[in-house]
Simulated assay, not measured.
Amino acid sequence: MSHDTTPHFHNQPGVAKIKVGSKEFMCIGALPPFDHPHVFIDMGAADEAVCPYCSTHYVFDAALGHGAADPAECVYHSETVLDPTA
């Protein structure tokens, strides 16, 4: 079973652009409870994308690795842990 997940990024610090190591990810805008609807973004062949809700500019950087971001604080880690046996 694969444990890969879709990375989630936010722009709580309000930076002009976020470099990400994934071309497919979710933008949540700001940190909860001020997040916007979580938007799936797929860059496809492009190397950048803009979130349609918050206008955060994302730029792909393969050197960062899957799920990483620059600035690193823009990676969102959910505090909710789901019980797979539930």
Rank of each mutant, 00 (worst) to 15 (best):
G14V: 07
T5A: 12
P37K: 09
D61T: 02
G21W: 07
C54T: 02
D61Q: 01
V39D: 12
E48H: 10
Y76S: 10
D47E: 11
A86N: 11
K19R: 14
I18R: 12
T5K: 07
E24N: 12
C51M: 03
M26P: 06
H38C: 01
S2F: 07
V20A: 00
H8A: 13
D35H: 15
A68F: 11
Q12F: 08
C74V: 04
E24G: 03
S22I: 10
V59N: 03
F9H: 03
Y53P: 05
H57K: 12
H36Q: 06
E73K: 13
P32E: 01
P52Y: 01
D83A: 03
Y58A: 06
K19G: 09
H8C: 15
T6L: 13
G67Y: 01
H36I: 05
K17Y: 14
Y58D: 08
G67T: 03
A46V: 06
A68L: 03
C54D: 05
A86H: 14
E48P: 10
C27I: 05
A69E: 03
V15C: 04
P84R: 02
H8V: 14
A72S: 13
A30F: 15
F60V: 04
T85G: 04
L64S: 04
D42A: 07
P84A: 00
T5H: 09
G21E: 10
